[in-house]
Design a protein around this nucleic acid. Structure first.
Length: 806
RNA sequence: GCCGGCGUGGCGGAAUGGCAGACGCAGCAGACUCAAAAUCUGCCGAUCGCAAGGUCGUGUGGGUUCAAGUCCCACCGCCGGCACCA
């Protein structure tokens, strides 16, 4: 009888061995595989079982790749360590963020080591390390030199609680993504990154990525490309013209009024004296509305400017209105309104009594008393001059060019994607490496002077004016212009947290290079990332920014690929026991530390996988780990018995072995890790039964099982592997191969149905003919036919026999 | 409102269109034990029946098919994303 499994001894033994003799070494000959985790923010709360899950999944995958194909696996870890929690902690305690951050890193590093994952800490990166952010700043300088970083004064999303400007991506439901405070608008000078210059490439690049369709769709919608036309409307009695963007130029004859955003630059000159007071009041009200109000209040409001425009096709005089349902920063900030064919325009026209002209026939007819807009682009054109009789769907495609030929507008493409607001009025971030000189303007800090070190300050508190705490340090702010040598001031804004995470995955493979961001040779050898594993919450933020950075770095020759992450896997969240998100405030956070101590790392690893499909959210169940723990102990006993007994392989054992290989390998390839664990349990139960009769299973079968289990439960597998008499690590062995012929059954139990209802089962040889099968089936259910007549006989080999009777 | 995803025992979940509920948790009964824990064995969707066996059953209603949890149509519910994008 085997000695009981002692996880504490075995796990610490192998941890030590792996440290002394690393199992994942680059000998220069092995093929490379880059398996990347989304790096964590080193929070003071440490890791909970939800973080574990992603790291376990990636480690199983990494170890599988090591064994299958003999890869050298790049599986690094680092720290996304700039950010608000550390800064807020500093505000409260006065302790420098670098100190609390370092303590958190040390703690989480210990926790990550508990997972027992293969990690090369020599590649570790930390976004707050000057040797790292030197290159974050360097990239910014390159973007500045290429005209992709620019300053702009604009109304921006302002979080009054964080006292910071937010990117559009950081505003959720009109509220601050971090603190939940209602976001307002504030006019400030900001650094912007021209991500819109890459809109098309960001869209096209998605096509070839092996990513979840959901994420690709979210990015596609975020970029929001649409095709249409810009059309110029002359203002009646003036030289001015208003340009609108429309995706429905086919309905141009139906444009019966126009609406401008309150912020539109032509508003003052369009407003007539009689309307001025009302218009100004409306504009002030719109500006003061929070973005939440402006979005949530769907009841249309508006005000007439007193001016008219001319419909360029039919020459009709149409009223020019203002309304906040027109957004100043999409399209041209002005729209032509076709109430008959657009819901919003219809609502507006109804409310303010504006004319409605139908230009697309529905079911070939004009609608007598329109109660809602007809928004389909299908039907024949009516009331549309020379376009009458055309199909609207066809015209929709052709109209942009027709408009362009007539000189009243042009064909255009529009995007929802906006440029990226890249400056933050905070302390704990990378200083933007720019110097402002009165003579030379904004000048990039010369590359040899990078990094611009983040100086110590006395107060980390952000200012109400929207200036960074850095602005208070005169000795740091005042500098000389690198261009003319005259007096100049440093940029005091810092970068958003996304800056470091947008490129950190490139740095791992050359983390200590002090000459370049990454050497081209290493980039060519190890990059891009083969598999990226992390939560779906980064679908449009981090993943879009990283793609943008990579495309830019490709364009300036740093790397030779355009897409950073070939394959993406989003693991689901681990929820608290009641199915709600784990959070400190709810007190339902489950720490892995005690479980590792009580059950062992291998048990927790397997339970993290067994809890549910890896891409799906799962609620943590404290008791579930007992089952996994029982399984490992049971397997330990079977394995020990088998090693000791050294029995001869039977056909049953050989078949089990080959089925197991096929089952586990298929499930790994499909990322069905929860059912892979089920299969391990199933086969283990079978082996336990065999062991009762034979004393164990044969050596090859047990060794095969151990090797298949190794990526999942590396410690116990190493121990058993050694007990089998191997000197080398199990991870130096190769992945078992299944022989389909040996895995195949020669007999199968086949259900026999009458009218689709199971009545019996029969054992059939797999090469039984249809006639034999049907005959056997008929015999099995003969007495159940009664007086019925068989009208149809169905036989699907190995699957089903069905008699249809009447 | 629009776009995704999901809906299966007490629970987590499993099922290339082919025996629904694998595997596990919890529960029940038994064995071992002075006892408990651990371990082992059996049972474990509902319902009728002493039993053999029957009937019903994968959110609801229809449909396709010899056969539907799985495919199609309509609806309900939950979760996620987007949200006046012209």
């Amino acid at each position: 009888m085997a000695v009981p499994y002692k996880h504490i001894q075995v796990e610490s033994k192998w941890r030590k061995k792996w440290e002394e003799h690393p199992i994942n070494v680059n000998d220069g000959k092995k093929p490379k595989y880059y398996c990347l985790d989304m790096f964590p923010y080193p929070s003071g709360a440490g890791l909970h079982v939800g973080h574990w899950r992603g790291y376990v999944i990636s480690d199983v995958w990494a170890r599988y790749k090591m064994m299958d194909g003999g890869h050298y696996v790049i599986h690094p870890m680092g720290w996304d360590a700039f950010g608000l929690p550390a800064e807020n902690y500093a505000i409260k305690t006065g302790q420098h963020p670098s100190i609390s951050t370092a303590a958190n890193v040390a703690n989480i590093k210990k926790q990550i080591d508990q997972i027992g994952a293969i990690r090369d800490w020599d590649m570790e990166v930390n976004t707050t390390d000057p040797n790292f952010y030197k290159w974050t700043q360097w990239i910014f300088v390159q973007m500045f030199k290429h005209g992709l970083a620019y300053e702009k004064e604009m109304p921006l999303n302002w979080c009054p609680s964080c006292k910071a400007v937010l990117a559009n991506e950081e505003v959720v439901d009109g509220k601050c993504e971090r603190c939940g405070a209602e976001v307002t608008k504030k006019n400030l000078r900001q650094w912007m990154l021209k991500i819109t210059a890459y809109a098309d490439r960001l869209l096209e690049g998605l096509k070839d990525l092996d990513w979840p369709e959901k994420v690709k769709k979210m990015q596609t919608d975020w970029i929001g490309r649409s095709y249409g036309a810009e059309v110029n409307f002359h203002v009646d009695g003036s030289d001015e013209a208003i340009t609108v963007y429309t995706t429905r130029p086919d309905t141009l004859y139906g444009a019966t009024f126009m609406v401008l955003a309150p912020e539109h630059p032509l508003v003052p000159s369009l407003t007539k004296e009689a309307q001025r007071a009302e218009v100004e009041a409306y504009c002030v009200a719109a500006a003061n509305k929070s973005s939440v109000d402006r979005v949530q209040n769907k009841e249309k409001t508006g005000v007439f400017t007193g001016s008219y425009a001319i419909n360029p096709l039919n020459g009709e005089k149409i009223e020019i209105w203002l309304s906040d349902y027109v957004l100043s920063d999409y399209g041209t900030g002005a729209i032509m309104c076709v109430p008959a064919h657009d819901d919003r325009d219809f609502a507006f026209a109804k409310k303010f009594g504006l004319p409605i002209v139908q230009v697309i026939a529905r079911d070939g007819k004009e609608i007598p008393d329109m109660q809602e807009a007809y928004t389909e682009a299908s039907g024949t054109m009516i009331n549309s001059g020379e376009w009458n009789g055309m199909e609207s769907a066809v015209l929709k495609e052709e109209a942009p060019l027709m408009i362009e030929k007539r000189g009243i507008g042009k064909k255009t493409v529009n995007y929802k994607l906006r440029d990226w607001v890249f400056s933050r009025q905070r302390y704990w971030g990378e200083p933007i490496p720019i110097v402002h000189c009165e003579k030379c303007g904004a000048v990039a800090v010369p590359e040899e002077q990078l990094p611009v070190l983040l100086p110590d300050v006395e107060s980390y508190q952000p200012t109400d004016t929207g200036e960074s705490p850095l602005a208070a340090i005169d000795s740091w702010v005042n500098t000389t212009c690198p261009c003319c040598g005259g007096p100049a001031k440093r940029e005091t804004n810092t970068m958003p947290q996304w800056a470091g995470s947008s490129w950190y995955f490139l740095r791992y493979v050359d983390a200590h290079n002090d000459k370049e961001l990454v050497s081209r040779a290493k980039a060519d050898e190890y990059l891009p990332v083969d598999m990226y594993i992390g939560g779906v919450e980064h679908a449009v933020l981090h993943l879009l920014y990283s793609r943008f950075y990579t495309k830019f770095l490709h364009d300036i020759g740093v790397v030779d690929f355009e897409e950073p992450f070939k394959r993406l896997f989003n693991q689901g969240m681990i929820l608290g026991p009641k199915g709600v998100k784990m959070s400190k405030s709810l007190g339902n956070v489950v720490s892995p530390d005690d479980m590792v101590r009580d059950y062992g790392c291998d048990s927790l690893r397997i339970y993290e996988l067994f809890i549910g499909p890896p891409q799906q959210d799962s609620a943590w169940d404290m008791r579930g780990i007992d089952g996994v723990n029982r399984f490992l102990n049971k397997f330990w006993n079977v394995a020990c018995d088998s090693i000791e007994a050294d029995v001869k392989a039977t056909p049953e054992m050989i078949k089990l072995r080959h089925k197991l290989i096929a089952d586990i390998t298929m499930r790994l390839d499909q990322f069905a890790l929860n059912t892979a664990v089920s299969k391990f349990m199933e086969y283990n139960n079978q082996m336990a039964k065999i062991a009762q009769e034979c004393g164990g299973v044969d050596k090859e079968t047990i060794e095969t099982y151990i090797r298949l289990l190794a990526p999942f439960a590396p410690h116990i597998s190493e121990e058993l592997w050694e007990m089998c008499g191997h000197d080398e690590s199990i991870f130096a062995s190769t992945w078992p191969k299944s022989d389909a012929a040996l895995a195949a059954d020669d007999e199968k139990e086949v259900p026999v149905q009458i009218n689709g209802k199971i009545k019996a089962t029969v054992m059939l040889s797999v090469d039984a003919s249809k006639e034999e099968a049907l005959q056997a089936g008929k015999a099995a259910v003969a007495e159940k036919f009664g007086s019925a007549q068989i009208v149809k006989e169905v036989y699907v080999p190995g699957r089903i026999i069905n008699f249809v009777v009447r």
